[in-house]
Amino acid sequence: MESTLSRLNEVQYLQMFAATISSDKKLGEKYLLKNIGALEDIERKSDLQEIKPAIDFNLGRAYVYAALMEEQAHNNGQASRYMKSAQNLFQSLGWSDSTEETLKTVATRELDKWRIPPQTKESGK
């Protein structure tokens, strides 16, 4: 139980970090790829087979964040490579609809949770 909890903690931390930095262009460019690397390491090393699909899901979602980020930077080739990696993972998780549109919707919904709303003059008072 302790080893599962510890692995889940790592994934949770990386997932929250990925979602938070993805809402900021500069931070995203700097840290998102490192974050994906860390998730890939956990996925490769994972001795806990029962939580491997959950790790794959979080990795897939991080690929979609990276695709969105590259798309914004007009790096369309890299964006479609990330999207393809994400689609492969989501298909392996049994998703019948792993179209770009669906994956972007799922990722954006998560990103919106972590996005800090811009401060208006009224709220700053």
Binding site: I51, P53, A54, G94, D97
Partner: peptide, 30 residues
């Protein structure tokens, strides 16, 4: 310890909504 299970909770729910029967069932059972 309280928040770590949320990874599996969110995953199970999203699989329940989007995956085929076999995968959704596996995620919920896990």
């Amino acid at each position: 310890r309280q928040t770590a299970p949320w990874v599996l909770r969110d995953f199970a729910y999203i699989q329940y909504r989007n995956a085929d029967h076999e995968h959704a069932n596996a995620a919920l059972l896990t």
